[in-house]
């Protein structure tokens, strides 16, 4: 599609990838939540799967996808509101990624702590 290289292309591609990833999880999450209507046995069995280490790591990935998509979307809205900011689009992307990393570090620690402390 609009492959022009550089930061713009990567941020745009990751916006799509994270969006599709979150949508796929959301569809599965609606189905697992629906089991609550069928009773505790079904719901607790399936929700229990989320406690396996592989799932916990995936949940960190999900958090990262939502956070990236949110920050990148916010940057897009800022550009559209103040078009002159586009001059600094590269710098703004680096600030966005620094913020993303700064938030993901404690999030990853808090979410994975139970895996290593047992």
């Amino acid at each position: 599609m609009r492959y022009r290289g550089g930061v713009g292309q990567w941020s745009w591609m990751f916006h799509r990838l994270t969006g599709v990833g979150v949508l796929i999880f959301l569809c599965l999450h609606i189905i697992d939540t629906f089991l609550i209507v069928l009773g505790p046995e079904h719901y607790n069995t399936v929700i229990g799967w989320y406690r396996y280490p592989l799932f916990r790591i995936s949940e960190v990935g999900l958090f990262a996808c939502v956070l990236y998509h949110a920050l990148n979307g916010l940057r897009i809205i800022l550009f559209e509101a103040w078009t002159s900011l586009v001059r600094w689009h590269r710098q703004m992307f680096y600030v966005q990624m620094a913020l993303f990393a700064a938030l993901m570090l404690p999030v990853t620690y808090l979410m994975l702590r139970p895996v290593f402390s047992r």
């Binding site: 009773g39 505790p40 929700i47 989320y50 916990r56 949940e59 999030v107 808090l110 139970p114």
Partner: peptide, 10 residues
């Protein structure tokens, strides 16, 4: 973060 998958159940 406030809760976790360890406490989420029916």
């Amino acid at each position: 973060l406030i809760n976790s998958v360890d406490v989420i159940d029916y």
